[in-house]
Amino acid sequence: MNTTVATIVITLALVLMLGSVIAAVRDRAMGMVLLIGFALLEVAVLVQAGFVIAAVAGGAGPEDKVTLFGYIAGEVLIPPAGVFLGLAERSRWGSAILAVAGFAIAVMTARLLQVWQGQA
Protein backbone atom coordinates (compact mmCIF):
# COMPACT_ATOMS: atom_id res chain seq x y z
CA MET A 1 0.00 0.00 0.00
CA ASN A 2 1.21 3.46 -0.85
CA THR A 3 2.27 5.08 2.41
CA THR A 4 2.75 8.48 0.78
CA VAL A 5 -0.91 8.64 -0.22
CA ALA A 6 -1.97 7.45 3.24
CA THR A 7 0.20 10.16 4.82
CA ILE A 8 -1.38 12.80 2.60
CA VAL A 9 -4.88 11.55 3.48
CA ILE A 10 -4.17 11.55 7.22
CA THR A 11 -2.50 14.98 7.16
CA LEU A 12 -5.28 16.55 5.09
CA ALA A 13 -7.94 14.98 7.30
CA LEU A 14 -6.30 16.30 10.46
CA VAL A 15 -5.86 19.80 8.98
CA LEU A 16 -9.54 19.80 7.97
CA MET A 17 -10.52 18.57 11.43
CA LEU A 18 -8.59 21.45 12.96
CA GLY A 19 -10.16 23.95 10.55
CA SER A 20 -13.63 22.59 11.36
CA VAL A 21 -12.99 22.81 15.10
CA ILE A 22 -11.84 26.42 14.68
CA ALA A 23 -14.98 27.22 12.66
CA ALA A 24 -17.18 25.58 15.31
CA VAL A 25 -15.47 27.43 18.16
CA ARG A 26 -15.86 30.73 16.29
CA ASP A 27 -19.57 29.92 15.87
CA ARG A 28 -19.34 29.70 12.09
CA ALA A 29 -21.28 27.37 9.84
CA MET A 30 -19.40 25.35 7.26
CA GLY A 31 -18.01 27.68 4.56
CA MET A 32 -16.52 27.44 1.10
CA VAL A 33 -13.00 26.66 2.36
CA LEU A 34 -14.19 23.59 4.27
CA LEU A 35 -16.38 22.53 1.36
CA ILE A 36 -13.42 22.60 -1.05
CA GLY A 37 -11.18 20.99 1.57
CA PHE A 38 -13.49 18.04 1.98
CA ALA A 39 -13.87 17.71 -1.78
CA LEU A 40 -10.05 17.43 -1.96
CA LEU A 41 -10.12 14.89 0.87
CA GLU A 42 -12.65 12.82 -1.05
CA VAL A 43 -10.38 12.88 -4.11
CA ALA A 44 -7.41 11.81 -1.96
CA VAL A 45 -9.46 8.99 -0.44
CA LEU A 46 -10.55 7.82 -3.90
CA VAL A 47 -6.94 7.89 -5.14
CA GLN A 48 -5.96 5.83 -2.11
CA ALA A 49 -8.77 3.37 -2.86
CA GLY A 50 -7.42 3.10 -6.41
CA PHE A 51 -3.91 2.32 -5.15
CA VAL A 52 -5.22 -0.33 -2.75
CA ILE A 53 -7.40 -1.99 -5.38
CA ALA A 54 -4.48 -2.00 -7.85
CA ALA A 55 -2.12 -3.49 -5.26
CA VAL A 56 -4.62 -6.18 -4.28
CA ALA A 57 -5.20 -6.98 -7.96
CA GLY A 58 -1.43 -7.32 -8.25
CA GLY A 59 -1.46 -9.97 -5.56
CA ALA A 60 -0.28 -7.86 -2.64
CA GLY A 61 -2.13 -7.14 0.59
CA PRO A 62 -3.26 -8.87 3.76
CA GLU A 63 -5.23 -12.06 4.18
CA ASP A 64 -8.22 -10.17 5.55
CA LYS A 65 -9.47 -8.52 2.37
CA VAL A 66 -13.02 -8.02 3.67
CA THR A 67 -11.91 -5.72 6.49
CA LEU A 68 -9.55 -3.91 4.11
CA PHE A 69 -12.30 -3.09 1.65
CA GLY A 70 -14.68 -2.32 4.50
CA TYR A 71 -12.40 0.50 5.57
CA ILE A 72 -11.93 1.67 1.97
CA ALA A 73 -15.69 1.81 1.38
CA GLY A 74 -16.34 3.54 4.70
CA GLU A 75 -13.74 6.19 3.97
CA VAL A 76 -15.22 6.94 0.55
CA LEU A 77 -18.66 7.45 2.16
CA ILE A 78 -17.69 9.72 5.04
CA PRO A 79 -16.66 13.04 3.38
CA PRO A 80 -19.85 13.33 1.25
CA ALA A 81 -22.01 12.28 4.21
CA GLY A 82 -20.32 14.85 6.45
CA VAL A 83 -20.70 17.62 3.86
CA PHE A 84 -24.36 16.67 3.34
CA LEU A 85 -25.06 17.01 7.07
CA GLY A 86 -22.86 20.12 7.29
CA LEU A 87 -24.91 21.80 4.56
CA ALA A 88 -28.16 20.80 6.26
CA GLU A 89 -27.01 22.20 9.60
CA ARG A 90 -26.22 25.87 9.03
CA SER A 91 -24.75 26.52 12.44
CA ARG A 92 -21.53 25.84 14.35
CA TRP A 93 -22.78 22.28 14.75
CA GLY A 94 -22.43 21.76 11.02
CA SER A 95 -18.74 22.54 11.40
CA ALA A 96 -18.61 20.22 14.42
CA ILE A 97 -19.95 17.41 12.21
CA LEU A 98 -17.08 18.01 9.76
CA ALA A 99 -14.59 17.84 12.62
CA VAL A 100 -15.98 14.37 13.40
CA ALA A 101 -15.71 13.39 9.73
CA GLY A 102 -12.08 14.56 9.49
CA PHE A 103 -11.13 12.73 12.66
CA ALA A 104 -12.85 9.57 11.45
CA ILE A 105 -10.93 9.61 8.15
CA ALA A 106 -7.60 10.08 9.96
CA VAL A 107 -8.26 7.21 12.37
CA MET A 108 -9.64 4.92 9.68
CA THR A 109 -6.63 5.51 7.42
CA ALA A 110 -4.30 4.67 10.30
CA ARG A 111 -6.32 1.49 10.88
CA LEU A 112 -6.22 0.80 7.14
CA LEU A 113 -2.43 0.84 7.26
CA GLN A 114 -2.50 -1.58 10.20
CA VAL A 115 -4.90 -3.91 8.41
CA TRP A 116 -2.66 -3.77 5.34
CA GLN A 117 0.31 -4.83 7.44
CA GLY A 118 -1.76 -7.70 8.82
CA GLN A 119 -2.15 -6.33 12.33
CA ALA A 120 -5.92 -6.53 12.30
Binding site: G74, L77, A81, E89, G94, V100
Partner: peptide, 27 residues
Protein backbone atom coordinates in the same frame (compact mmCIF):
# COMPACT_ATOMS: atom_id res chain seq x y z
CA UNK B 1 -28.44 21.85 16.02
CA UNK B 2 -26.22 19.92 18.43
CA UNK B 3 -28.57 17.01 17.81
CA UNK B 4 -27.40 16.87 14.20
CA UNK B 5 -23.84 16.42 15.43
CA UNK B 6 -25.14 13.52 17.54
CA UNK B 7 -26.78 12.10 14.41
CA UNK B 8 -23.38 12.25 12.67
CA UNK B 9 -21.57 10.50 15.52
CA UNK B 10 -24.27 7.84 15.89
CA UNK B 11 -24.29 7.31 12.14
CA UNK B 12 -20.55 6.83 12.23
CA UNK B 13 -20.82 4.31 15.05
CA UNK B 14 -23.63 2.52 13.26
CA UNK B 15 -21.27 2.21 10.28
CA UNK B 16 -18.29 1.16 12.41
CA UNK B 17 -20.12 -1.35 14.60
CA UNK B 18 -22.24 -2.61 11.71
CA UNK B 19 -19.26 -3.25 9.43
CA UNK B 20 -17.29 -4.87 12.22
CA UNK B 21 -20.20 -7.14 13.13
CA UNK B 22 -20.84 -7.92 9.47
CA UNK B 23 -17.24 -8.96 8.86
CA UNK B 24 -17.02 -10.95 12.09
CA UNK B 25 -20.26 -12.85 11.53
CA UNK B 26 -19.62 -13.48 7.84
CA UNK B 27 -16.02 -14.67 8.19
Amino acid sequence: GPGRALVAVYGLFALAAGSRAGVQIAT
